[in-house]
Nucleic acid binder design. Sequence first.
DNA 1: CTTCTTTATGTAACCGGTTACATGACGCGT
DNA 2: ACGCGTCATGTAACCGGTTACATAAAGAAG
Lengths: 332, 332
Amino acid sequence: MANSSATIRDVAKLAELSVASVSRVLNGHGNVHADTRKRVLKAMDTLGYVPNAAARSLSTARSHAIGIVLPDLHGEFFSELVRGMDMAASDANYMMLLSTMHADRERAIQALSAMRGRIDGAIVMAPQLSPEDLRRALPAGSPAVLVNSPEEDGQHHNLRIDNRGGVTLMVRHLLASGRKRIVHLAGVAENLDAVERKQAFCDTMKALAPELPVRVLDGDFTDTGAELLVQQLLASGEEFDAIFAANDMMALGALKVLRTIGISVPGQVAVAGFDDIPLASFLDLTTMRIEISDFGKRAVERLVAELSNDAPPATLERVTPTLITRATTASG
Amino acid sequence: MANSSATIRDVAKLAELSVASVSRVLNGHGNVHADTRKRVLKAMDTLGYVPNAAARSLSTARSHAIGIVLPDLHGEFFSELVRGMDMAASDANYMMLLSTMHADRERAIQALSAMRGRIDGAIVMAPQLSPEDLRRALPAGSPAVLVNSPEEDGQHHNLRIDNRGGVTLMVRHLLASGRKRIVHLAGVAENLDAVERKQAFCDTMKALAPELPVRVLDGDFTDTGAELLVQQLLASGEEFDAIFAANDMMALGALKVLRTIGISVPGQVAVAGFDDIPLASFLDLTTMRIEISDFGKRAVERLVAELSNDAPPATLERVTPTLITRATTASG
DNA sequence: CTTCTTTATGTAACCGGTTACATGACGCGT
DNA sequence: ACGCGTCATGTAACCGGTTACATAAAGAAG
C-alpha cells in the first residue's frame, strides 16, 4: 500500500542506491544506467512515492507555479479569464495560485507577499491600485504581467484593453443608428478601465457630435447598481434614447429595469454594454467583445515566456475589442 | 531598497541576534524581549524581508494552502463556486491552488499528485471519476472534501446536492400547473448529478403520475447541445408541454429555440432548469436554486475544520435546492 | 599492462525556515 | 552566600529535495 509520505531517501534505501541516483531518475538526467532506472522506478512505485514540491522548490528556487491576483471573482468575466489562464498554465505545466484582493489595497500587497516562495511569477489585475502601490507590491525583480493595471515605469509587461478604440466604435454605431441622447453608465471611479471608458465616451461625443449633450452617470459595474441609476434616471423625467454601459452587467441591469417598466428596447431606448460576457448573447445585447479567455491565456503565455527567459521586451500591449451588434441597438 | 531575497539569517545578522529569535518574533512566540522584537522588526523592514513559504512549509509540514480540483471552469456555476471557496479560504488565511482536470481521468490524478507538498488538503469535484480512481488519486490519509463526487468508503467528507429531492419538487410543480407531457433533458451520462436527476425524474413520474409518459432525451449539459435536441424533438412532431432540463444552460438553450421558432413559453410549453445560475433570473427561468457560492464556501470551511482537527465525522452531506418559480412555468 | 577517458554512482553541502535543547543571566527565598 | 526557578537567547539538527564534486569501475589507446 502506498505509504502516505515516503521520501526520496526511503526510495533510495529500498532500491539500494543513493538519493542522487533517485533524483537523477526523477528529473530525467543523463548518465543513469538502464538497470538503475528500472530499480528506482520499481521502488518509487511500491512506495507510492510522490516528490515533495516544497522541498524541491526550496532547493531549485523554482516552484512551477504562478500567482494570479484578481480584484474580484464575480461574474462571467472572471470565470472566463481564469479559464483562459488555466488552459495556458496547464499547457505549460504550471500550477495556479489564485487570490483575490477584496477591494482592499493593503490586502493586495499582503496577498502577493504570502505568495513569495511559492510562485515563480505573478499575473496581477489591479485596476484600482496606484502605480505607487503596485511597485510596492511587486518586488522589483520578480517577473510579473500586469493586466488592466496602471502603467508603471516599464518594469513589467502590461496587457490592456483598448478602451478608447472600443468606445469610439460603439459611439459611432449608436450615432449611426440614429440615437441622439446617449447616457453613459460609468464603472467604479477607482477602476482604470472605467475611467478610460468614461473619458473616451466624453471625448468621442465631443468629437463626433459636438451638438449633442454628453450625459454620464456614475455606476459601480454591478447590475443592481445600474438598476438603481436607471430608475432614478427615469424618475427624473430626463429624455434619453440610448444607454451605453461601461460593462455588460450594468447594461443588463438597465435592460431589466427598462423591460420591467415597459419601455421598448430598442424601440424607445437602445442598450449597449462592454465585454461580451456569455450572458450578453442570450439577451441579445449589443456590446464590445473582448475575447476574455484569450486575454487570460495570453497573459499566462507571456509570463511563462518571461520565466523561460525568452521574453520579448516589456511593453504595453493593447487588445482591441470588436463591435458585436445585436437586437438591443437595432435601428429604432 | 528592499533586497529581493533577504533570508532569515540576513535579518538575524543585521539585528545582531540569532535566527531563532527572528523566527520567534516572526511567529509571535512568547518569551521575546520587547527590545529584541523591536530590533528584529526594524531589520526586517530595512531589508524588506518576506519569509520564504517553501522553506517554511518544508519544516513545518504545513503549507497553509488548499488544492481545488474541478472538472471544468466553464460558466457561472464554477465562477460562483470558486468565489465562495475564495471567501472561506481567505477568511481562514489559506491560499487556493486551482486546477482543472480537462475531462481526462489520468490528469486528475496527476494534478492531485503535483500538489503534494504544496497543499494541506484538497477539495475535489469529480462527478465523472469512479470511486476506484478517486481512491487512487487521494492518498489515503490526506484530508479532502469531495464535492458532487461518487461516494467512497467513508474516507472523506462528501458534499452533495439532493438531486432526488430537487427533482421531486420540480416535477410536482410542473404537474400541479397542469403539464401532462414533460420531457426531461438529461446531462452527460458520466456525470453523477446527471444520472441521479434522470433516475429521479423517471421514478418521480412513475410515482406521481403513472398514467403519463416518461420522456427523456440525453443531452450534454450545454446550451448548444440542448438546442439541437429540442430542434430534433420539434421536427419529430412529438407532443410535449413542458421541458425540464437537468441544468440551466440546457434550459436556456431550449428556451432560445422555442422562442426563435415562435412557440409561446409558458403558454404552449413550460421550461424549467436546475442550478439557478445568475442568468436564470434574467431570463425568468423557473429552476431549482442551489446557493452555489455557499456550497463552495461550505466545502472549504469543512476542509479547514478538518485541518484544524476539529472535524465532525466524515459523512455524506446533502444540500437541498429550493424551487424558484418564475415566468417560464406559469400556469398555461 | 599501464594510463587516460568515459560513464555510473555516492557523499555531503545547501536551499531557508522551525524548534528541541542548552546556556547564561537574573531575582528570590532561606 | 547558595541553590533554584524563570526568562531570554543561542546552537545546531532537521524537513526533503538538488547538485557540485569525489570516486570507482570499465573501456580505449598506446
